[in-house]
């Protein structure tokens, strides 16, 4: 499925961000409904049904695509919202839905067989056998790969499955297997997997303490930042913990993933699409990151050896960047 074109898949938390992404050169925009059916269920964010219909029409009029993320796991006895979300995405004319739960995949396969299905990163399918299970049972056309694989892993997986893959090019470094991390609900009682909010803002508190800023999730002290020290997201996996009498970033430093300098390698591995993370970020972020990647991809397609100057450090988490798991040694 190696294609010479790398599709740029960009986030939109609001209709304004969707327009910004398309203006900046996104091939495809992904977004979610304004409820617990998507993994970025934060206050004030996401699309209602009317906005989704308008968003899809706006994109299609400009020859771009819209994917709808319905990538949380329905609670037992309350699957209706997820099924209605799949119906609404089909009705809005979305180009595909991004799903994670086996039950939702089953529903979509039976009720909307013609609606293209992508497998969300939340399904944590990190090997060919898992991917083939989803493909054979639910005819998924594309898999969003977990951020725990190296470029070599990605290449091998594409070779073995022949399926379209979408990989993260910019965003967070996710050290945990996604979709099955219960750290945030352990601290807050709110499940990222079914309620769509890791480190929900309602449970995040910042306190100033003599020039230091301290962050809490629920009642758990997550981190402390000296004056002018770059801050991290208040998620459990980006907290500081004490082991062997020493406080450290036990899981991962506050650092952003940026693969812009290894686009040729990703392309050579046979990747179909590059995903920019950040539906919870502002449209200024969307415009800047998408614009930069658009230029880099255009340069790459034009045969440029080195890609466009990378000036995204300031919008990366903690103001620092890494290749994450793509390069060996990250483990």
């Amino acid at each position: 499925m190696t294609s010479s074109y790398l599709e740029l898949v960009c986030p939109a938390g609001t209709p304004a961000a969707l327009r910004a992404a398309i203006t900046a050169g996104a091939d495809t925009v992904y977004c979610g409904f304004r409820d617990c059916t998507n993994a970025r269920n934060y206050p004030g964010l996401n699309f209602d049904r009317k906005e989704m219909i308008e968003g899809v029409a706006y994109a299609h009029a400009r020859g771009r695509q819209v994917l709808v993320a319905i990538n949380t796991f329905p609670r037992a006895g309350d699957e209706e919202p997820w099924h209605r979300a799949v119906d609404a995405a089909a009705e809005a004319g979305a180009d595909a839905v991004i799903l994670a739960d086996i039950g939702v995949l089953d529903y979509a396969t039976r009720h909307h067989p013609k609606l293209r299905r992508h497998l969300s990163v939340q399904a944590s399918a990190a090997n060919p056998m898992s991917i083939m299970f989803y493909r054979d049972n639910f005819d998924i056309k594309r898999v969003v790969l977990p951020r725990v694989l190296s470029i070599e892993d990605v290449a091998a997986l594409i070779e073995q499955t022949g399926i379209e893959t979408e990989v993260f090019a910019f965003g967070s470094v996710g050290p945990m297997s996604e979709g099955r991390c219960f750290l945030s609900s352990y601290m807050t009682g709110i499940s990222p997997t079914s309620e769509g909010a890791c480190a929900p803002a309602s449970h995040v508190v910042y306190k100033e303490d003599g020039g230091c800023m301290k962050s809490y999730l629920g009642n758990v002290a997550l981190n402390e930042f000296a004056k002018d020290e770059p801050a991290a997201y208040p998620t459990p996996c980006k907290g500081r913990y004490v082991t062997h009498d020493r406080a450290s970033y036990l899981f991962e430093e506050p650092i952003g993933l940026n693969a812009i300098d290894i686009l040729p390698q990703l392309k050579a591995a046979g990747v179909t699409a590059l995903k920019i993370e950040g539906r919870q970020r502002s449209r200024a972020y969307v415009a800047q990151v998408v614009g930069t990647f658009r230029k880099a991809l255009d340069d790459l397609a034009g045969g440029a050896v080195s890609v466009a100057a990378n000036d995204l450090k300031s919008v990366a988490e903690g103001g620092h960047e890494t290749f994450g798991a793509y390069k060996t040694g990250w483990r």
Partner: peptide, 29 residues
Amino acid sequence: DVASLQSLKGSPHVIGPFINVFNETTCDF
């Protein structure tokens, strides 16, 4: 891990706690 499910199809097996079974439709499947 879902990796096992393809090969186990049709033979009795246990779904461990690391595979998300959050609802009835998933359970039925």
